[in-house]
Design a protein around this nucleic acid. Structure first.
Lengths: 345, 345
DNA sequence: CTGTTAGCGCTTTCAT
DNA sequence: ATGAAAGCGCTAACAG
């Protein structure tokens, strides 16, 4: 391995040029527009790249060219399979369009969300995908004003400002509740919270509408939880178990799968027959719901598709001068499984 | 909002300097070494930054300074909570040390793994954390030779070349099997595969050692699966159910939690009492195992700690000229839960 | 098709 | 404490 460069400094393009006996610009052409260079020169340059172990400096490249084929995705919760699905979908359209996608985990922390937003912005990515936490989006406006397009996933776009991809949460709540009613359930419990979370509130709205629109005489109870976790679900379940049998709901809609799972567990442990005595349906189609001994019904959100569409919108915003901002609202779908299907078992 | 810059070009530091009536270098100092600048000048510059909506260009900054306070983490499977734990641990030490961490999901695909390795490398991150797939590490050597330190997580470091953090897989297998034996199980089944996977093979070795070292007369059966998934586990469970009761194992060690979960489900559905008739233990401490109706025993790996240590090693490699490469081997720990605790229920 | 050159926006001496 | 100027490694426009 011959080297023209000095010391431990990584070889640069001019080292390659010198080694190959051509001009700097020619090396650049070989790398970026090979068709402009003769076969023979190209080979010489490639040889030099090999000899020197040259790797081009993406930073300098980005600075000179003004941008890189790169997007950033700031994810609110990398531990939630719904967002992981979104990330996979986004990455798929990135790859299909010759872009790369980098991830940053905000971990439901506004400070970190804004930190990474700024990092991507300062790093001159072509655009940012953001699955935001349920909080004000000031930092987004700042980034966007700075010329960096932002597309929101799982959050509506801001009219005239940015695109967004959402699922119709209200309808999801409607679907879940309607399903419980159709299974003959009449004492419905909505468990979830805090209600300050937009998604929870909207799902609850859907529940109320489903009951209002139905012709049956159903009773709706609300238990507001402080979190959407398995332990919170266990608490709900235990509370129900402590009640006289007649005062328990016969149909539970938990606003999140983790909540539903915890709830189901507590009931099963107490000997209550999930599905038969109490139907339970969750929300999110997290990967673990289907793996339960009593597979838990849920409302699925098209995460993969959301990510795919969101990144396509981002690409359009970057490439198409006539781009128009819009919010795509996708429909959730009911996934009826054993936990609500007593009749069929 | 006043602006000195032309058109839609984002304001640069020289715009800020002009606006504030100071020199370019002074603006740089305000941002990077505020103590070198007088209170008054500092204020003027900050005001100009505000007025212009200036965001500094990290790309130019990195090019000029030679590096950024940034690491990259290439994750083999973002859907696996074990790796997510690692990512969280890594991010923690990154944040504690004023670094930022970007993620890239290789999704168990060697091509993508190498793509992102190169991307981080070309982007001049300070170093790369890699949770590799079980495949040759040629690309790692290339990146490292290029001057970019790489630390391996969940994979041993290459002696003299790179650091690594691993868990003792063999010992994990030993622990799991020893636990089954201690619970009085004598017809042990090891389910997992393919055996071409290093981790599976090592866990199996541990199983064999536990049996060999015990003084009891235990029988070991091996069912090699093609994958480590819930469906694969269901297949295993169904196969067992189809056997005469006397020919079934009374203790199952599944090399992964998903496998264990599927297996448990199939058995429960068939009316076999998990824990009582058959004890089952998995591996990985994936988040869903504890949420099972019969919480599944498992072997936990200190993912968070692994990530934390790995990134600390990376920081040391970057900062400390006397850095020595080493591989830290952490111990897995047994998490005994209901699925193996028939006596205590 | 090849070589030359002017930046990209910032950091960093080095004078002042 | 502040200002001037020399790059960082590359792209892109242009001249040959």
């Amino acid at each position: 391995m011959t080297t023209t460069s000095s010391g431990r400094r990584p070889p640069s393009m001019s080292d390659v040029a010198r080694h190959a006996g051509v001009a700097l610009g020619t090396v650049s052409n070989v790398l970026n527009a090979p068709e402009k260079v003769s076969e023979r020169t190209r080979r010489r340059v490639h040889q030099a790249v090999e000899d020197l172990g040259f790797v081009r400096n993406q930073v300098a490249r980005t600075l000179a060219a003004g941008s890189a084929d790169l997007f950033g995705f700031v994810i609110v919760d990398i531990g939630n399979s719904f967002f992981v699905d979104i990330a996979r979908g986004a990455e798929q359209s990135a790859v299909e369009n010759q872009y790369k996608l980098l991830l940053a985990n905000s971990d439901v922390d506004l400070v970190r969300q804004n930190l990474y937003l700024d990092l991507f912005n300062e790093s001159r990515v072509n655009g940012i995908l953001l699955a935001p936490l349920d909080a004000p989006l000031d930092a987004v406006a700042r980034v966007r004003d700075r010329g960096c397009p932002v597309v929101l996933v799982n959050w509506p776009g801001e009219p005239g400002e940015s695109c967004g991809v959402t699922v119709d949460e209200e309808y999801g709540g409607y679907l879940a509740t309607q399903h419980l009613l159709q299974q003959g359930r009449r004492r419905i419990l909505f468990a979830g919270g805090p209600l300050s979370l937009t998604a929870v509130r909207e799902r609850y709205e859907g529940t109320k509408r489903a009951i209002a629109e139905s012709n049956v005489d159903a009773h709706l109870e609300l238990i507001e939880t402080t979190r959407l976790t398995v332990p919170a679900g266990l608490d709900v379940g235990r509370e129900l178990v402590s009640r006289p049998v007649g005062e328990r709901p016969d149909g539970i809609f938990a606003a999140a799968d983790a909540l539903a799972a915890g709830c189901a567990q507590a009931l099963i442990y107490a000997g209550v027959s999930v599905a038969k005595e109490v139907a339970i349906i969750g929300y999110d189609d997290n990967h673990f719901t289907a793996d339960h001994v009593v597979p838990i019904s849920t409302v699925g959100q098209p995460g993969h598709e959301m990510g795919k569409i969101a990144l396509e919108m981002l690409i359009d915003e970057v490439k198409n001068p006539d781009h128009l901002h819009r919010t795509v609202v996708l429909q959730p779908n009911l996934l009826a499984r054993a936990s609500t299907m007593s009749e069929f078992r």
